[in-house]
Design a protein around this nucleic acid. Structure first.
Length: 425
DNA sequence: TCTGGGGTCCTAGGACCC
DNA sequence: TCTGGGGTCCTAGGACCC
């Protein structure tokens, strides 16, 4: 059976999560800021109507926000991650074939189940009701025979009230499909970013329909196979499969900006030790080992500050927090320059491979030590999972952490922390 | 003064192989 | 005067996504 894709997407996800637990945020402009309260990463519809752009640096908007009494929140990723997991659990109930595409979006193959619900639109409405009732979150649903069309249908469902939150592309007549494609700008297409939008418009292709009408050979020669595939998908030929099995990551990045400029090597190393521990946890979670670590330091100021980075090969592929930390601290020592003010530090693990397939040294005598290390790491992970992140950590990652990011307006972790449960009085 | 943190894929070009 | 024809692998950079 050919797949039929449903894209389920939570409206203004971070803002909606906050509103579930704080109804006073309903009906008023709300923004959620990135880590370090740096820039805007989520906006309520009211905030969008004020012209607050996505990704805008917050300090530039502070006056505007004050004038319009915009409610401002720091990111609360523990809350958002937990709410996301709840939504995914509900979706799995509806259709077992699901690709979790991002924290607030999933693709489902509804071909085997939609008849049971009375068609795509009815299925979409059932999903909306269930998610609203069980989590409090509003979602929109787009359904279509290709992923790119499902994204387009979702876009329509979100912006045009006549769809009531669900757009089944396949249920539209050919004339309706063509008319909608003529109304939506080429830049709204999934896979067409700012750059391509400009280039396509320069060639006179302004709407989705214009891109659809362009020849495949032309698009591939003038742009790339990627854009040619996008056009194929818009014409109804499915090129992108549902990726239900999450492949292990090919690289793992952990980096954070500092809450204030950092000039001391010791502080830089504390932060990097903390990042190394996080990266090692991610590595172990996907049962991989890393062969290479890249350490990067970003100097201030934002625009003109230099970036220093260097890759270091690990003695052998590893997932051991202690070995990674050692490598990263040594790397930081070599990159560090006295007198330089840093705003951000991070690391990237690459050369990842499956832990169980890892090639060992021919003269290796360390099997016993590796076995003990693996058990130690497993215990550490278990304790941190049970009692909270960082319950057990390396001393290298610091106690006070004065460089830690700003997060001045974070809401309580309502669903993941006993001390912060919501109270009804 | 003040600007996030992750990821993916594709392409071109260079090094190297026979 | 005149210098082949295939390949693979790796990396950097650029585009995109949320």
């Amino acid at each position: 059976m050919a797949p039929y894709f449903a894209l389920v997407d939570v409206n203004n996800f971070y803002v909606s999560c906050e509103r579930v637990f704080n109804p006073r945020l309903e009906g008023v402009p709300v923004v959620v800021l990135s880590n370090n309260d740096g820039c805007v990463v989520a906006r309520s519809n009211e905030a969008k109507a004020l012209g607050i752009p996505m990704g805008a640096p917050w300090f530039q908007l502070r006056d505007l926000a004050r004038r319009h009494r915009v409610r401002t929140l720091s990111s609360n990723y523990e809350l958002y991650g937990d709410m996301s997991a709840r939504v995914v659990a509900i979706l799995r109930d509806f259709a077992p074939d699901i690709e979790v595409y991002s924290i607030d979006e999933s693709f489902l193959d509804v071909a085997p189940v939609q008849a049971r619900h009375g068609g795509g639109t009815a299925l979409g409405q059932a999903l909306r009701r269930r998610i609203r009732q069980w989590t409090g979150l509003p979602v929109c649903v787009g359904l279509a025979p290709t992923k790119t069309l499902a994204k387009l249908a979702n876009h329509l469902a979100k912006r045009h009230p006549e769809f009531d939150g669900v757009c089944d592309w396949g249920a539209l007549s050919a004339q309706e499909q063509s008319a909608w494609m003529g109304r939506v700008g080429v830049g709204e297409i999934w896979g067409v970013g700012r750059r391509l939008t400009g280039q396509l418009q320069a060639l006179g292709m302004r709407s989705v329909r214009d891109l659809c009408l362009a020849g495949r050979a032309f698009l591939q020669a003038r742009f790339s196979v990627v854009l040619a595939r996008v056009a194929d998908e818009l014409r109804g030929t499915s090129c992108l499969d549902l990726e239900a099995m999450a492949e292990p990551r090919q690289q793992i990045i952990v980096s954070r900006s500092f809450g204030r400029p950092v000039t001391a090597l010791a502080e830089l190393q504390e932060a990097l030790a903390m990042h190394a521990a996080r990266a090692a946890e991610k590595l172990r979670a996907q049962r991989s080992v890393a062969a290479l670590v890249l350490v990067s330091l970003h100097a201030r100021p934002f625009r003109t500050g230099e970036r220093f980075e260097r890759a270091f090969a690990l003695p052998e592929p590893t997932d051991d927090t202690r070995l990674l930390t050692g490598a990263v601290l040594a790397g930081a020592g070599r990159l560090f320059r006295a007198g330089c003010a840093y705003r951000k530090a991070g690391l990237l693990l690459s050369g990842l491979s499956a832990r169980d397939l890892c090639q060992q040294d021919l003269f290796d005598r360390g099997a016993g030590a590796r076995e003990r290390a693996a058990r130690l790491m497993a215990v550490m992970d278990r304790i941190n999972r049970t009692y909270g992140p960082d319950t057990l950590r390396s001393a290298a990652s610091g106690l006070e952490r004065p460089w830690h990011m700003r997060s001045g307006h974070r809401s309580p972790r309502y669903t993941t922390c006993w001390e912060e449960l919501p109270v009804v009085s």
